[in-house]
């Protein structure tokens, strides 16, 4: 069944909550069709704080200190940056089992503009101690992330896309490893995250290009095993619908640098340095990507050029 990521996630949380009274949802005035039954059947495990993200994270912190497994929920942009300091000091600094769930990866709220766009989240959140970030690739992963939320210790940040993306993953997802090859390994690898993994697969299926795809879905990844997997790779293009500064591309470069691996990396990301004007390009997500220099044509051009360069 085609399902939004958040519905896949909350449906699974609903199942888990049947046997776990410590799961508490703290929503900052944000819903999902699948949350209605949770509210109905577990009213003592559902809190709506209203539009107050700082309080939502603090409340979740207190709940965790008293033994609960709180899940703070809102649009990604608000439940990360508005309350970044609270997340930094409490769930992360005190290493508490608080999960932050945000819907709205990248520019998926394309009609809303920059206030609702989540461009800097990966860059910023991955600097936090103890935090494990899952950038969901498809709805199956979102469902699996529910089990990860409830069963793993420590703080987590689960970012979801609004678009229905499915059919990429099945079975158990290895959140410790944090990445997977979606094709056979190739000398030319596109390393992508979030919704751009689907984009990379579409490009591979429809263009006359030969490359491999690796999806990074959890930050940090198991870098030791990733290092070994990159043996033999000669060219990397990173692909993300987020700010170039500090995002997936930077992360890959940091890993390569730390291990002194010399592979050329070309980063495809949103060029947001000059401002958010392109967030107000209307007509769909592609219009926004184009405005920030990473429309489908831009991506094809870069892949063609970089992977032909041998």
């Amino acid at each position: 069944m085609r399902q939004a990521m958040r519905d896949a996630y909350w449906d699974r949380i609903y199942e888990l909550a049947k046997n776990d009274r410590d799961i508490v949802i703290v929503s900052a005035d944000f819903g999902a069709p699948s949350l209605d039954k949770f509210r109905r059947d577990f009213p003592n495990q559902y809190i709506n704080t209203g539009i107050s993200e700082q309080n939502a994270v603090l409340l979740a912190t207190g709940l965790a200190l008293a033994g609960k497994k709180p899940i703070a929920y809102a649009i990604t942009q608000f439940i990360t940056l508005r309350c970044f300091e609270q997340i930094r000091i409490y769930p992360c600094g005190m290493d508490l089992p608080v999960t932050i769930v945000g819907v709205g990866a990248g520019a998926c709220y394309w009609e809303s503009g920059s206030t609702h766009h989540s461009f800097e989240q990966l860059s910023i959140m991955r600097t936090l101690p103890n935090l494990e970030t899952v950038n969901c690739t498809d709805c199956h992963m979102a469902k699996e992330a529910a089990d990860f939320t409830v069963h793993a210790s420590g703080p987590k940040f689960i970012q979801m896309d609004r678009e229905v993306i499915d059919g990429i993953y099945r079975g158990t997802i290895d959140f410790k490893k944090g990445y997977s090859f979606l094709t056979a390994k190739n000398e030319n690898m596109v390393i992508s995250t979030g919704n751009m993994t689907k984009e990379a697969m579409d490009i591979l299926n429809h263009a006359e290009l030969d490359f491999g795809i690796m999806d990074i879905y959890k930050f940090p990844v198991d870098t030791e095993s990733l290092k070994a997997e990159l043996e033999g790779v000669k060219n990397i293009i990173t692909l993300e619908e987020g700010a170039r500064e500090g995002g997936l591309g930077s992360y890959i470069l940091e890993i390569l640098s730390d291990y002194e691996i010399r592979i050329p990396v070309h980063r495809i990301a949103l060029n947001t340095y000059d401002g958010y004007a392109a967030s107000y390009n209307y007509g769909g997500r592609e219009e926004i990507r184009k405005g920030y220099g990473m429309g489908r044509k831009d991506i094809l051009r870069v892949i063609g050029k970089e992977f032909a360069r041998q």
Binding site: V24, I47, Q54, N55, V57, L58, L59, A60, T61, G62, L63, A64, L65, A66, G67, K68, P70, Q86, I89, Y90
Partner: peptide, 12 residues
């Protein structure tokens, strides 16, 4: 920050 945390504990 403390009051919101206190509220979470009290709620639990």
């Amino acid at each position: 920050c403390g009051l919101g945390i206190a509220a979470g504990i009290a709620q639990a």
